[in-house]
Design a protein around this nucleic acid. Structure first.
Length: 269
DNA sequence: ATGGCTACGATACGTAGA
């Protein structure tokens, strides 16, 4: 079972990249962010033809999130975070895929900081953390995957000094991420690669990808039942080098099959 | 520190991204 997250930066502009990657990587579940398309402009036919069912929450020009599942339709549970009915951004969608709860999120960027956008980011983060607490307590396997717009530690930034005052790296935001993790979530990439430099995003500016001037901001958080099954976690970084690439690369985990529940059995002789 | 690039729109610059 392979679960991926990919900030596509425009699902229609990026459709050839998305379809090629789906074909090569064959993930079972995919969380997409930054669709940048209104609800009616989601390329459902092409995605179905690639073998995936989908649910999505679009928005004109910005934001937008989707969950894809290979060979099945995700069953939607919610399409926004609780806690602010006035929030008009499409940044969260949640579904069941089989017996797994999948939360797909696009946390606000928050620049410039300080300011109203940064305040919105912190409020949104707080709503996510409250919701995550309930999800973590559930018995079902849960993954919270997406673009968190946070580098959790210095190891996750090519040049930490340069990013200290940025909304993606300020102390308030890193501490919000740490608080979320303290509920018990496993940061899958970091769990399997504790000391490795891993990036999921490279700026379009300044030849950042060629210089490997990257950030690790796309994360997959697992609750205990899923963390126990974690086998592999990687970034498809070559996708960032493709023609018309997103500035993010697909990031994914591989899970061991669910253990069969011990079954009472009558042995006949 | 600045500026560099890319996508999206009542298609030409303005807004947003990170």
């Amino acid at each position: 079972m392979k679960i991926a997250t990919f900030n596509v930066n425009g699902v229609n502009g990026r459709l050839p990249v998305l379809l090629r990657w789906l074909g090569e990587s064959a993930p079972d579940i995919v969380c997409l962010q930054e669709l940048k398309a209104p609800q009616e402009r989601f390329p459902l036919t092409a995605i179905r033809d690639a073998g995936y069912g989908a649910i999505w929450h679009g928005q004109k020009s910005w934001n937008g999130v989707a969950i894809l599942a290979r060979g099945t339709d995700p069953v939607e549970r919610r399409r926004s975070l609780p806690g602010d009915p006035e929030d008009s951004h499409s940044r969260y969608i949640e579904a069941m895929v089989g017996d797994i709860v999948v939360g797909c999120l696009y946390l606000p960027n928050g620049n410039p900081a300080p300011g109203p956008k940064f305040d919105y980011k912190l409020r949104w983060f707080d709503r996510l953390t409250k919701h995550a607490k309930k999800l973590f307590a559930a018995k079902e396997p849960v993954v919270l995957a997406g673009d968190y717009n946070v580098m959790p530690t210095d190891l996750d930034v090519y040049k930490p000094e340069r990013w200290r005052d940025d909304a993606l790296f300020r102390p308030e935001v890193r501490s919000a991420y740490a608080k979320l993790i303290r509920q018990g979530w496993t940061d899958a990439l970091r769990e399997l690669h504790p000391d490795e430099k891993i990036y999921t995003f490279w700026d379009y500016f300044r030849n950042a990808y060629a210089r490997d001037a990257g950030l690790r901001i796309d994360h997959l958080l697992l609750n205990a039942p899923l963390a126990a099954r974690l086998k592999a976690a990687q970034v498809d970084r070559d996708v960032r080098g493709w023609e018309k690439a997103s500035d993010h690369a697909p990031t994914w985990i591989e899970l061991a099959d669910k253990k069969r529940a011990a079954r009472k059995r009558v042995v006949k002789r």
